[in-house]
Design a protein around this nucleic acid. Structure first.
Lengths: 206, 206
DNA sequence: TATTATACATTCAACAATGTATGTAAATGG
DNA sequence: CCATTTACATACATTGTTGAATGTATAATA
């Protein structure tokens, strides 16, 4: 076939990722073949194998594209809490994570796929290790932020920052997981996210 | 092949479920073939197809066997809180859910598989609908329990019981999900479960 | 004890999915 | 304007997996 412009190639790259996203959400990763992705994007499997090594690489690429920058941004934000008012900054940072997810569809879709469609097994694949590292980055940032708050005597509980970070991560994970659930969204995080997060964080701070 | 005793047949049934459980956790559902399960149990695929319709039926059966009764029990317990001291009963019921999961390996394995290995997609399979119904049973029970507590003026927050139930479910889900994560268990729920649950529930009650 | 249902094993047909190899025409760089 | 690389499409070989059909020896049953 005829060679495409760099621009055109990039457009098919994104078309492939978009098609993959939609198919993964609709019918799952296991049931989605590389041919499904290609034809849904108006291409053939040759295009998929040109841009990606295999199905896992597609998943990783779509995570990078749709969640990578935001992930890094939150990471940085938690590591650099405003010294003037770290507690308010922390609360706002946590809330904005949720608000970003509910307001940016592509970000929500990427997290949806990672939470509801990727299998996490004992024999870890490269993809699983990659995603695990991403989450542990966030966890470390959270723990450091809570440690800063503890040193500022801002924490109201006797539990360790490490443990509080675990609880916080679990709560966040559960809220987002529930909100992104397929079918009727049983939990409207856009409306109730702040209230539910404050409910938890009120138990952390003085 | 020779026909087996009813007793022997039931033993192979359980052997198949045990083999399936171990394989699903180790290498995932998608990568585990029915032949894998059979040979791991010392049988052939014929045995699997005799006891189960397909792979999804295996998953459903192992959930029923390992989590079914406990699920029903907690359901009932939440719907019949001790009128003498409903708050303490509620707190204890929630804690015992977690304690059961961390102390009963087979229960933990079943939930592990459902949480980490089953894909949840828009086009729901029969298995997905089954699991979704189970969770909504638990959700309804939780919401009713919290409604009872609200009528008793035991709730400390202005948020609705429905919303609190959502938050509670999400927190529980996150904690259990994290605890059952493959690889090094980053969160030791056996040691810290009660403290983390009290942290949250303290924000609910007076 | 004769019959029937059971608990599998074995075999087969069908196809689906992957990875790779090869073809190709146009874009790009010098 | 020529050589080379790019961005795919096409074709192929291989392999895996499912579902169903069939076989069969024995346990259960009456």
């Amino acid at each position: 076939m005829a060679r495409k412009t760099k621009d055109e190639a990039e457009r098919t790259y994104h078309a492939l990722l978009n098609a993959a996203t939609a198919l993964f959400i609709k019918q799952g990763i296991a049931k989605t073949t590389l041919n499904d992705i290609a034809t849904a994007a108006g291409m053939t499997r040759g295009a998929v194998y040109w841009h990606f090594d295999n199905k896992d690489a597609v998943i990783r690429a779509l995570w990078d594209r749709n969640a990578g920058t935001l992930h890094a941004r939150f990471n940085q934000e938690l590591l650099n809490l405003d010294p003037e008012n770290p507690e308010q900054h922390f609360r706002q940072a946590i809330k904005s994570i949720v608000q970003n997810i509910v307001s940016e569809p592509e970000l929500g879709e990427a997290i949806h796929i990672v939470m509801h469609c990727v299998e996490f097994t004992d024999e870890q694949t490269e993809l699983q290790r990659y995603l695990r590292d991403k989450r542990s980055e966030l966890h470390n940032a959270l723990e450091k932020a809570l440690t800063v708050l503890q040193k500022r005597k801002a924490l109201h509980t006797s539990l360790s920052p490490a443990l509080l970070a675990q609880g916080m991560i679990c709560y966040l994970y559960g809220l987002i997981h529930n909100h992104l659930e397929p079918g009727k969204a049983v939990l409207d995080l856009r409306k109730n996210g702040d209230a539910l997060l404050d409910l938890f964080m009120d138990s952390l701070f003085v």
